[in-house]
Nucleic acid binder design. Structure first.
Lengths: 122, 122
DNA sequence: CGGTATCCGCTTCGATACTG
DNA sequence: CAGTATCGAAGCGGATACCG
């Protein structure tokens, strides 16, 4: 069983204000980051497919989110020199690892969301 | 191996815009929600302990976050009728389950954060 | 000690329009 | 098709002050 204390035993100051882990946490746990990553967990997707499958995301947020995830080395962008343009996004091996850790969490939420919102009546 | 498609096979429309799962995702993956939950994963904490241990959180955000987590049935609040007041917060069984799913993710971030930020030079 | 209320800047975000 | 630019609205979040 892992705990915050154990994480901090190996990495003192993990998840404190100025720690790099905090930056990564913010990228990865962001409103749209989770959904884009898990959608790419299904396989390679084009811009327009992501726009459609990540329900509710705006073009601006999709672009911003993808740029961050690419910069973090979680997502890979491939632009095919065709007309009209064709751009593919897919997970890197590191991104794949991350998504494999995120999906059980999403599955849990899927199983428990209703009970939780009943508890809070909203 | 779990996937988004499998989650949606059991629960059509999971994580679409109007779905309850989306609300829960926002609560749970929020900037401070993750950190408060994982800190409570260490054991019962008082308000002032949380304020100190969740590095960088303001009183406003701590109050707001705790109210949401209590309403969602993830955290339990116990107010002891002493002078001066003494209030304990602890995970509910459901909160415990959630944290157990979150910690491996945090551990992964702890192990990979540096490599990721090197990749992005920021 | 354990909060709540108010103010306010600053970022986030969505809509729209436009470009290669 | 795959984005970027711009703008206004909303709300996130911190500081401060105050209450039980």
């Amino acid at each position: 069983m892992v705990s915050l204390a154990e994480i901090r035993a190996e990495r003192p100051g993990a998840f404190t204000h100025a720690c790099p882990t905090r930056t990564v946490l913010d990228h990865v746990m962001s409103r749209w980051g989770v959904l884009v990553l898990c959608t790419l967990g299904e396989g390679t997707r084009r811009w327009s497919e992501l726009r459609r499958e990540v329900d509710g995301i705006s073009e601006k947020m999709l672009g911003q989110t993808l740029r961050i995830l690419v910069a973090d080395g979680l997502v890979e962008r491939e632009s095919l020199p065709t007309v009209p343009p064709h751009v593919d996004y897919r997970l890197t091996p590191r991104g794949r690892e991350l998504v494999d850790h995120m999906l059980p969490l999403l599955a849990w939420i899927g199983d428990n969301a209703d009970a939780m919102l009943v508890a809070s009546r909203g």
